[in-house]
Structures are given as structure tokens and as C-alpha cells.
Design a protein around this nucleic acid. Sequence first.
DNA 1: AAATAACTCAACCGCAGATGC
DNA 2: CGCATCTGCGGTTGAGTTATT
Length: 273
Amino acid sequence: MGRQPCCDKVGLKRGPWTIDEDHKLMNFILNNGIQCWRMVPKLAGLLRCGKSCRLRWINYLRPDLKRGALSESEENQIIQLHARLGNRWSKIASHFPGRTDNEIKNHWNTRIKKRIKFNGLDPLTHLPVEQEEKIEDKIETIPESNLQKEEENETLDVTATVNNKAKRDDPEMDEKEKEVNTNSDETNELLKNYEMLCGSLDVDLWIDQEDNTFNTCSPSFSREDSLNPSIGESSTAKEDSLQQWGFDSVYSMLSWDGFNALEQELFLMENSQ
DNA sequence: AAATAACTCAACCGCAGATGC
DNA sequence: CGCATCTGCGGTTGAGTTATT
């Protein structure tokens, strides 16, 4: 028997969410928390699959979501993180409280990529395009006899990479050590490229990070940040998003019966994941 | 004003890892 | 240990919006 789909798709609704559906999901989660996404649509009375509910909650309904455009400094941080982490959007997003991986991924694909290309860098490798072209030219002009040597060297490189990967995948090795190992000279070089690109960034600050955090954007998320609409740049946008459910402000939403305790539970639940 | 192109972003899909039985 | 199921992630799609011709 093959693997079953995550949900029975017959009779389930797809496409954009209606305000009524949002309201149902929001209401259910705030009152009951999240035990099992598969059960959420059934219990909340929604004709959606659990996966869809989860996505909607994470990307749109969570009360602590920060809305509005990403600032230039946030963009710069995304670029630097991408140079270190690659397309690991959830890891990158974890450095931006209130931002979702989907949002950052979209922003990268639609805007930052262009900005990087415009500045003469390859968004995949983060290397200057000219440098890449030279490498390609070099490969093209290598005599046949030398190609075998190159391949052998490459094999060695691959072996080294595999060894490094095995080391990284070793469950005995803690996160910090992994980070140190991945902060190679190559990364150092990339960061210096970005220092030139982005301006006055303290490269050493990034390289010396042992706790995988950044001074300019602390991942520690204050409860007050999520509750106090006066904090943060996007309070207006946040209020706009609340008004679609009939809340005038974050405060009026928080006065909803039993919300405060549940919100705290949710907050703790999210942090423990 | 209409047609078309370009852009944005919410939502979907499929896969892989984690977990439980 | 193997299998089924659940969850989370990254890639992709396409509808809606905005800009351009």
C-alpha cells in the first residue's frame, strides 16, 4: 500500500481563504491551541486540509506576525544569511521575529535577487559574475590532458565535502561546532564581498558569531513586542490585519475571553518547537 | 481606455525527516 | 526493524495587481 495523501482531497476547498474561514481557524486555535493539524479543520468546521490550515496560520493569521515591507537593513541581513545558509529559508526566517519563511523566500525571489544581480553578483553563489565567467573560461580552455587531473582534484574535493557533510550530520556534534565548521574561508570571502556591497558592516561580527544570533536583530522575541502595537514599525499594518476580523486593535483582540492564557501557551509552544 | 507585460505573493505540491506503533 | 503517518521545508504555480505601451 502506497503512502496516503496528507488529507482526503475529495470535497475539500482550495484556493484563497475567505474572512469567514480565517475567523473560524483563528477562533479555534486561540481557544484550543494546536494539538494535531490534521484534526484542526474537522474540529474547526473547515473544509480544508490540515496542511492548508497550518500554512494559513503560520503565514497569515499568527498574532505576532510582522507585516509591511522589509527594510533595507533586513534585506542586507537576509543577503548575508543566505550567503551562509543558502536556501534554508526557515533558518533565515528564524532570525527575523514576526517574518515567515515564505515571505522571505518571496522577497528574495522577487526583489533581492534582482538587487544582487544589479550589483554584479550571482545570487546563487554570491560571487562576482566576472569572477564566475573567468572560472568558466578557464574550464573551457583547459587542455584535454589536464581535464583528468582536474576531475581527480574534484573527486578529492567531493570526498572532502562528503567528509565534512558526514561530520556536520554527526548527531554527536553540537550546533555550535557545526556553525564553526561551516564558517569557511569561502564564507569569509563572501561576507567581505557583501561588506563592500552593503556598506559599513562589521564582518568580524558575523564571523565570530558563536551563538548564531545577530546583534542587530535579536531572535529573542519579547512578549511585549507581540502585544504592544506601539512597538515596531508595522503596527498600523498589524492593526489593519486585525480589523479584517472585526478587531479595532491588538488590545481589543486580547480582551477576547481566555485569550491571554492561550496566547501565552501558544507563545511557549512555538518557542519550544 | 484597452491591451499587454511584468510583478507580487498566497497557496499548493512533493519530498524528507521525525515520530509512533 | 519496518511501516504508516504527521509535520515542516523548499520549489513552484497562478491569480490578482500594477506598470507600460
